[in-house]
Amino acid sequence: MKKVLNFLDNYLEETLCVTLMSVMTIIIFIQVIMRYIFHNSLSWSEELARYCFIWLIYIGVAYGCKLMKHIKIDAALKLFPDRIKPYVVIIGELLVLVFAAYIVVTGIELTYKQWLFGKTSPALGLPLQYINLAPVVGFALVVIRQIQAVWYRVEHLHDKKELEVE
């Protein structure tokens, strides 16, 4: 059990992302091949690739949080005295957490609405709630990653090196 959790903690987002990215690339590649070699345009390929892409983005956001590699304006931290910097960073992490939680909640509401209206995708006939769930799942993972990040920051509050690594 612990092994499984450990694996999920280390590789969950990465594995999902790499799979989605590969599938998406291959589908588009096949689409080109089908059109130019077999003179047969696929009707579903573009749509499926696009849905992989949407999922890739939002799982990718969580992956970015896990690696702490999101694009930030770190220079702004210089505005604060050294003593306060760690707290500023924690407030920043908490704001991300708040935003992610907000997206999860409103995303569930939106998905529920889509489900009520029974919308389906044009080419594959896929119920659209499966696509609307992408930001919900992605940002739910962000919530988890942010809790880990805040925890980590609090634990290393007095460890000066942590901020310089950023």
Binding site: E14, C17, V18, L20, M21, S22, L56, I57, Y58, I59, G60, V61, A62, Y63, G64, L67, K69, H70, I71, P135
Partner: peptide
């Protein structure tokens, strides 16, 4: 290969969330 594609995914996520 896994690591290379993973890098591209990370860049994609961090860039595309900005676009969204």
């Amino acid at each position: 290969i896994f690591g290379t594609i993973g890098n591209a995914c990370n860049t994609t996520g961090t860039t595309m969330v900005i676009i969204g």
